[in-house]
Structure formats: structure tokens, C-alpha cells
Design a protein around this nucleic acid. Structure first.
Lengths: 196, 196
DNA sequence: GTCTATATAACGATAGAC
DNA sequence: GTCTATCGTTATATAGAC
């Protein structure tokens, strides 16, 4: 792996664990195995490292789920469930990636707030369009009641975010699994039944 | 307001906005209107300020919802909805309080991670017991199907957390309202209908 | 592309006068 | 209880040799 990639991966882990302000360039350099000033041969500043890493993570996240959707040949319900499970697995196992993603989204360093927000809007729109297509297909198949698409997308995003947050609060995998399963069942039950 | 309270309130805002590492004692002192060393007459360290502020916020959060539940004389559905709305309002209006709460929970400063986690477990248990009582009452009234209580509590917590996260990502109040309303309807529809 | 050495600024915390 | 002055440390970033 070349040095630049090594710096990015190390930074993602450290920014995820200690935050932008909490992770120093000295920390990063030490883990990469070079001295601090050498970082400046690959990136122009700490900001530069963060923004490059974030762009990479956003992109990877969307691509992962885009692939999951296009590769499928099962029911929309099964695909939605798979997205939930894949997301939950990421939250519990590859913690650093999604932790970094959400941390920078929720609590960006002050000076980069605007640029990070713009970046997110771009990727979130992409993700939402992908999900809207999926729900439309589900309606055509008669799996869910025909209605405005947006509430389906909104509540699904809300579910994904809730699962992420819960994954950081709960202390055992068993509890986390129960939360994911329970919340998914309530969600699917909620969108597939006609409103009383 | 006495100086100690002023320090706590200022710290909550600054820690919410800039994080523990990002908010300096100089920032806090300046906003309070005293010099940096004067802080040490009220608190023994920066950690001390944070832990005291966090204990205060945790307590206030639980008390607010506990009061909301005990004061009610309406259906459980209406009470649940009121909790959602109250929480959403907090997310959008009194941002700093809940932002500080969730920020320290999700991304605590490394050295205080364990103590903050212990603190949260204590308050989360209290909150969960409160919610479990509410769902039990709802079952007795026949509003929701009789079943294991825990999934009801878990999915409700997941919904609250999802709404918090969404509130930070979405850019307009209209969109946020749609998310809250849509997610609530899916949730209530999901728990009040028998599983197909 | 990596290093040593260093500039400059900010951090949390303390000493001691008033 | 608040202040000025300062300590010791660490931060990002740069200069310049190899």
C-alpha cells in the first residue's frame, strides 16, 4: 500500500476514535511509520487529509449499497432487509468507517462545517434517489401501499440512523441484534400495512 | 445567575458546538465574562466541568420526559406521540442541550469514555423502565398487541435516536417535520398492527 | 520523499498578589 | 473570588539538509 493510502486509512481510524481535534498529526505519522513533517509531502494540511478521507468514505458507502441493490434478484423487502443488516454489520464490525462518516456529519470541525455539509448533501441525494427507485419498484410489485414515495425514504433513513446511534450506546451484540431485528420488523410492518 | 451555573450553561453550549477538545477554557471564560484562571475557583479541572454539566443534562432530560408521562391523562398513543414531538422540538430548538448530550454519548473524550458510559447506563435504565411501564399500560388498554415489552422499548429508542440524527442532517424545518411525522406514523402503524 | 530542527501559537493548569 | 504572570506541554506548519 502506498504511503498516501496508508495515511488516509490511518487518519480515518484516528479521526473516528479521537475526533478531528483529538487526533494529532503526530499520532497519524507515528501509526503510519513516518515522521510528522513527511505528511506534508502527501497532503497540504490537516484539513486536506480530512476532506480527502471523507470524500473517499462517502463514495465507498454509497457504492457499497448501490451494488447491493443492482446485484439483487429478490423481493424489495429482502433487499431492504439486506441494507439494514449490511448497515448494522458495518456499525458493529467496521466501526471506524461509519463512525468517521457519522462523526464528521454530525459534529464537523467548525471551520470545515460548510464544506462537509455540501459534500454530504451531494451523496445523500444520490442515496435517496437510489432508495426512491427501490420503493417505487416495491409499489409496482404491490408489496407496499401506493402512496407518496418520500415518507418511505424518510422513515427508512431515520431507521438507519437510529440503528447507527444505538450501536454506539448498547454494550452487547445480543442487545444490538434485538434492536435491529425489532426495529426492522416494526418498520416493515408499518410500511406494508395500510394505515388504520 | 451565579457564576458556577453560568459556567455550566456556557460550557454546555460550547462543548455542544465545538466538542470537548475543540472548546477551550479560554473560550468558556470569555463568554462567561471572567478570566481563565478564575474558572478554577469553581471547578477543579476541565474534566470536572464536563462531568458536572453532563450529569445535569442527563438528569434534566429524564425528568422532562418523566413529568410528561406522569402528568398525562390521555391515551398511550397520544403520550408516545407527545414524547416524539417534545424530543423533535428539543432537537430543532434547544439544539445545544441534546447536541451536548448525544455528542458526549457517541463521541466522548477518550479519557472520560468509561465514566460517561457508566453515567449513561444509569440514566438509560431509568428511561427504559419509564417507557416499559408506558407500553405495559398500552397493552392492558388493548392499544397494542400483547407481546414481549422489550422490542417496543427498543424500537422506540431507535426512533428517537433516528430523529435526533436526522435533525442534524436535514436543512429545512419542513423536511424535518415530514421526517418526524412520517417516521412516527410508520412506527405506530408498525407496533399497533398484528404482524402479518 | 524523508528527515532534523525550529517557528509560532494555543492548550490546561498553577503561583501568588489583591 | 478574581486577577496578572507564567510554567510546561503540545499543536500545526515550515525551512532546509540529505
Amino acid at each position: 500500500m502506498d504511503t498516501q493510502t496508508k495515511i488516509l486509512n490511518t487518519s480515518i481510524s484516528l479521526f473516528a476514535q479521537k475526533g478531528y481535534e483529538g487526533a494529532s498529526l503526530a499520532d497519524i505519522a507515528k501509526l503510519v511509520g513516518i515522521k510528522k513533517p513527511s505528511l506534508y509531502n502527501h497532503f497540504s494540511s490537516k484539513d486536506d487529509i480530512l476532506l480527502t478521507a471523507l470524500e473517499k468514505v462517502f463514495k465507498g458507502y454509497n457504492e457499497q449499497f448501490f451494488q447491493l441493490i443492482t446485484d439483487k434478484n429478490s423481493s424489495v423487502k429482502a433487499t431492504l432487509y439486506q441494507i439494514i443488516i449490511e448497515n448494522a454489520k458495518m456499525c458493529w464490525e467496521d466501526q471506524d468507517l461509519i463512525l468517521f462518516y457519522k462523526r464528521m456529519l454530525l459534529f464537523p470541525p467548525e471551520l470545515l462545517k460548510e464544506r462537509i455539509n455540501e459534500m454530504n448533501i451531494r451523496f445523500e441525494r444520490e442515496f435517496d434517489e437510489m432508495m426512491a427507485g427501490l420503493f417505487k419498484e416495491s409499489m409496482n410489485k404491490g408489496e407496499i401501499p401506493a402512496a407518496d414515495i418520500q415518507p418511505y425514504v424518510n422513515s427508512f433513513n431515520c431507521l438507519l440512523d437510529g440503528i447507527f446511534t444505538r450501536s454506539n450506546i448498547v454494550d452487547s451484540f445480543e442487545k444490538f441484534e434485538q434492536i435491529v431485528e425489532g426495529s426492522w420488523q416494526v418498520y416493515w410492518n408499518g410500511i406494508s400495512n395500510e394505515v388504520k
